[in-house]
Structures are given as C-alpha cells and as structure tokens.
C-alpha cells in the first residue's frame, strides 16, 4: 500500500492559488468517475446495512399479512433475541468457532507451516504448500463436500481410525463443532501460511544471525526476534481471519446444517434459519444487525491498525 501519488495538479495551471470556489468546482469535476462505484456501494452495501437496522424493528415475515405490510414493532425482536435460549448459545458457538478455528487453528498452523517450510527440502515444500493452497482455492461448497466426506460416519477419518482398531464416533452428529472447526482450519490455513511466509522472508537475516551468534536457541530466536519483527503481519492476519471466519456459512451449512438441533448454528446459520426456515424475517434481520455491529467493531479496530497506510 503505497502512499498517494504526488498530485499532478501543478501540470494543469496555477491551481494552488486559485480561489476556493473554482477549487470546489474542479474537485467536483474530478469526482465524476467515482459515480458508478459510489452508486453501486450506496445501493447494495449501504442500502442493506440501513435496511437491516430498519427491518430489525419490524415484524416482517416471508408469508402472510406481515410479509406485505410489515409493522413497526420497536425493540420486540431484540427483546425476543435476549429471551431466546438459541441466541446466547449461537453467540457462544460463533465465538468458539472463530477463536478455535481462526485465531488458534489457522494462525498457529499457518505460522508453524511457514517456519517449517524454511528448513524443508524443495520437493516437500512445493508439494505441501500446493496441497494447503489447493484446499483454500477450491470453491467453498466443494471444500465442504470434501470435509463432509472426511468426517462422515462412513468417511475417511473413521476408516483410518478403524484401521488402528478404534471405532470412531459419528463426528458430524456427536462432535459437530469439532468437525466444522477442523474443517475450517483445513480450508483456511493457506491464507495465514502465505501471509506469514511473506512476512518471515522479509525479516532481515542479520538480526537472526546476530541472535544465533549470541547463543540464542531456535525457540528464543522465534519468540524474541522473529515474532516481534512480524507483529504487524500477525495483527493484520488475526483481524482478517477473524472477519472471514465470522461470516463462514457454506462450510457449516453443508456439513451439519447447523445441527443436530442448533448444536452447530453459528450466527450466520441462525439468522438464515430464523428468516427462511421459520419465516421470521424481522427476527432474522435483528440477528443480522447484531452480526453487522460485531463485524463493524472488528473492522474499526482493524482499520485503526492500518491507519498509517491510508494517510
């Protein structure tokens, strides 16, 4: 992210000294090419966000009179949300999913792989990174099928466990969260691995060499030299993987459908089910609004950490 290119204003006349009104008019003319992008963003990004806040105060439904003329019901949806035992459960499952699969799983495994790749022989490095990236490049629904087959009661995992004499459980029913967490680690680690590989490659070798000469062990070099040097990449990557994982829908929907019951219904699944399965669009919209607010909080933290790069 480079800084803004020097403005070529000087090439087009004595603008810096021009009076303010022509300044404004010139800026307005220059902003014309932004119109398509602004219209698209206003209509399809800002529109739904505003609509989400508005809709969460109505009793909109899929069918019936409330579908045609939704009424304003105030905070009723939010009151129901707090009274509904499914909501806190879903919130907790979402937190569990994000922390276990993104913050811990993808980041630690990604960092570990990036470190190991440096001391691996060429063919191993090429093969393993291709496999890890392949899981990430696949369309999400195909990855979900692959993970479904892997964790199914008659799937590969239980066949492997059976090979060493362990009768594996039906993962998707008995441990649905564990299955979707592992599946998301499998699918998403490539991103963290690539970010960390790029970051570690930029750590100046002199620093690590100096630490080695001073007798630092491999672990000490990692903790005291490499990690502090790449801390910007770590915080950026933590935020990005958190935001991506917060909105994972397809993987969970295909593998468990949010079930059994609501045992793996994270917030995106719960919002979808309330709105379309139980036809409570207003209630689903309230859940969506909560998610948007959570996402917005994370985004603001993330943007603040990137601030110097925009300025």
């Amino acid at each position: 992210m480079t800084t803004l290119a020097p403005a070529p204003a000087g090439a087009r006349g004595p603008e810096p000294s021009a009076p303010r009104r022509t300044h404004v008019r010139r800026d307005a003319r220059r902003l014309v090419p932004l119109v398509p992008a602004v219209v698209l963003l206003a209509l399809f990004m800002l529109g739904p966000v505003v609509w989400s806040f508005y809709g969460s105060f109505t009793n909109a439904a899929l069918t019936g009179p409330a579908a045609a003329n939704p009424e304003f019901v105030g905070l009723e949806n939010y009151a129901n949300l707090l009274a509904d035992p499914d909501f806190p459960k879903s919130l907790w499952l979402t937190v569990l999913f994000v922390i276990a699969s993104a913050v811990v799983g993808q980041n630690l495994l990604g960092l570990g792989l990036a470190m190991l790749m440096r001391s691996a022989v060429g063919p191993v490095r090429a093969a393993v990174s291709t496999l890890v990236v392949a899981a990430w490049v696949l369309p999400e629904i195909v990855a979900a099928f692959a993970a479904y087959a892997f964790f199914h009661a008659d799937g590969t995992l239980n066949a492997l466990l059976g090979g060493v004499g362990i009768a594996g459980p039906d993962w998707l029913f008995e441990h649905p969260m564990l299955a979707v967490i592992l599946a998301n680690v499998w699918r998403g680690t490539a991103f963290s691995m690539m970010v960390y590989s790029a970051a570690i490659a930029e750590v100046p070798p002199e620093i690590t060499e100096a630490a080695t000469v001073d007798g630092a062990s491999a672990v000490q070099r990692l903790v005291w030299v490499t990690l502090p040097t790449i801390r910007r990449s770590i915080s950026t990557n933590l935020m990005l993987t958190t935001l991506q994982t917060l909105s994972v829908f397809t993987l969970i929907y295909v593998m468990t459908g949010g079930g059994p019951g609501t045992d793996s219904s994270t917030l995106p699944i719960l919002a979808y089910q309330e709105a379309f399965k139980f036809a409570q669009v207003g209630y689903g919209t309230a859940i969506a609004t909560v998610m948007l607010v959570i996402g917005a909080v994370f985004s603001v933290v993330y943007i603040r950490s990137l601030k110097p790069e925009v300025d």
């Binding site: 989400s52 809709g55 919002a271 998610m291 948007l292 996402g295």
Partner: peptide
C-alpha cells in the same frame, strides 16, 4: 471488512 453473509437476510 463487512461480513457479507451477515447481510443476506436484509438483502
């Protein structure tokens, strides 16, 4: 950064 899946019901 906005979670698009969160938006699908209002969309």
């Amino acid at each position: 950064c906005l979670p698009i899946t969160a938006m699908m019901v209002p969309v």
